[in-house]
Design a protein around this nucleic acid. Structure first.
Lengths: 344, 344
DNA sequence: ATATTTCACACAAACGTTTGCGTAAATATT
DNA sequence: AATATTTACGCAAACGTTTGTGTGAAATAT
């Protein structure tokens, strides 16, 4: 029986009140009588009135929405971050509009324009792989829209950041291998130009250093994108070095998995002959055989943190937005792939 | 040098033109002179003008945005569907605002209200597990907002749907087992109350029937949510039936994986002693050992299809929206877990 | 040369809210 | 009883666009 578009004007006419009174009543403004307020709300309910958010937004210059730019939604890590973002945004009364750059710089740029036009109140982003120059994000600073990056962050533009301590995580992963008795530890590394992967290499080296182990360069295998296939290639190369490594720290789970498979095919026992630790804690890591020791990257929590930080900045807008960098602690999840000599 | 808010009014003053001319120029309206149009656009660019979408939306009564409700974003299937939705929505000039119900009915209802207030132009949804009565979606019909469900669809409210043919997929999976030589085929099934899982059971039985194999009820193991753990339990039970099954069709990959692990521990060879096929084509299925034969659920394509369908309905709004159901064809991906007797 | 059409732009209303200010009536204060 | 205060509401402007209609001048046709 109800119909498409009913406005506060309609309510006003029905009740012989002014539209301003209706508006205030709906928003529980104290200057409107209790009785009137009740009546207005009652009629609104009966008529199935829902406020036109567009009009309200325009008037208040608010959208109650934040924009998110990710490389791809369907990547395990990002989908979990987004989930965390949506969860806390919803709680705090914001909704999230989502875009994927699909690792295209052009599209990433286009999306920043759209977000500006859309008047989102804040932006959360993770840079795409193509993006080396991220100055297109500067527009948000110019129009004072809070901006927080996660994971792959920008160094060209002032912004808040939520990251994990890749150095620390790699350090602990490597040290765990050492504690479990490994003395000749290899590393399958990510792209040499990417900060987070550089940090992981450093953490790996630092752990070796601390325990007086030599950081032999030919034990480090670099990949371009840490793919499953690259992992296998690296693992095969590692099989040719002498002495054979007795432990491998991989910069992600994909390469760890394929390395393990290569090692198994070469009749090496995991973890007795070679212990392996991965990075990210993909679902598969707790299911494969052997189960994989890995670093949990706290994706969901990262999303929550980013959203909380962003919204705080949105609502503190009067005071200057001070950029903030939050480092999330990671967990080392110890499983069978390193379970050989419980020492630490 | 540029600053926060510059409007077409500002442009008008600078150029001694009326705001209507500016508006039309920016939108390439033919009644504005070529030269003027150029000038307007030039100044707009220089001043870093971006149109206020809120105002435009209000005036045109358009939001160019669609709402998406999913149980959880971080589930592999849904993240891929969302990716497909975003991809085609972006292409067609819409953006997507996303909500997760987290399988809570209460929250699902709340979100439908928000979406109505937000004036999204269409809604794509997948019902949460708690949702048995989905009449809260009827509001979209009342206000003539196109609605399309995917996967878990509503039968309480008129709407378009995009689904996969679960019956057919299950039929083909089972028939594949038969073709590969299995004669005593078990099924690990999903929740008995869920349509899509009921359809899979039917497909399984139909395939047996077609090949004159008996559909023995104790070869069907029902689970409540197809979890990894439940899969193991079911597999162990299957080990106790005589004669031992020589093939298992599982209603998802999780249970297939844990079943395989149980079988391996029982010193059964996959696929020689028992062949296994899963459902969904999770990433792990191509990595595990043996690699898993499974049904690809076409999640990304499902998202694309849903978005295309929805947007078509949005833009066809004048004619009555005829509800439409699209069935997406699935693929059977044959891998090692059934590679034993290539016959068909 | 005049009449007609086309061109290029301006006016103003409208979209549905929110909100500062104003003002009667009701109540409280002397 | 007169004044001051509070209560409860209305008026009208504003948010930044889009768009139907109006209008002079230039271009074309007669």
């Amino acid at each position: 029986m109800t119909n498409s578009r009913i406005t506060i004007k309609d309510l006003a006419e029905r009740l012989n009140l002014s539209i301003s009174t209706i508006s205030r009543a709906l928003n529980d403004h104290p200057s409107i009588g209790k009785k009137t307020t009740k009546e207005v709300k009652k009629l609104a309910r009966e008529l199935g009135f829902t406020p036109n958010t567009m009009a309200s937004n325009l008037r208040r210059n608010k959208t109650q929405s934040i924009g998110v730019i990710v490389p791809r939604i369907d990547i395990h890590f990002h989908s979990h971050v987004i989930s965390g973002i949506e969860e806390t945004a919803y709680r705090l009364g914001y909704n999230v509009t989502i875009f994927q750059s699909r690792d295209s710089l052009e599209r990433e740029i286009a999306v920043t324009e759209i977000l500006q036009a859309k008047r989102v109140e804040g932006v959360i982003a993770c840079l795409g792989l193509e993006t080396t120059d991220s100055r297109h994000f500067a527009r948000f600073n110019e129009i004072k829209i809070p901006l927080v990056f996660y994971d792959r962050v920008s160094k060209d533009v002032e912004s808040s950041k939520v990251i994990i301590d890749d150095f620390d995580a790699a350090f602990r992963a490597t040290e765990h291998l050492i504690n479990t008795g490994c003395r000749n530890i290899a590393h399958i590394a990510g792209n040499r130009n990417t900060d987070i992967f550089k940090a992981r290499v450093k953490g790996y080296k630092a752990a070796l250093l601390k325990h007086d182990l030599e950081a032999n360069e030919n034990l480090i295998q670099y990949t371009s994108e840490l793919s499953y296939e690259e992992g296998a290639t690296c693992a095969k190369k590692l099989l040719t070095v002498t002495p054979l490594p007795d432990g491998v720290f991989c910069a992600n789970d994909n390469t760890a998995i394929s390395a393990i498979q290569v090692f198994k095919k070469a009749n090496l026992r995991i973890p007795e002959d070679i212990a392996v630790v991965g990075f990210s804690n993909y679902p598969i890591s707790s299911i494969m055989e052997p189960t994989l020791t890995t670093i949990d990257d706290r994706a969901f929590e990262m999303g929550q943190t980013a959203a909380k930080l962003l919204i705080r900045q949105i609502e503190d807008k009067d005071q200057n937005i001070a950029s903030e960098t939050i480092v999330i602690k990671t967990d080392l999840i110890v499983r069978d792939s390193t379970n050989r000599n419980p020492k630490g």
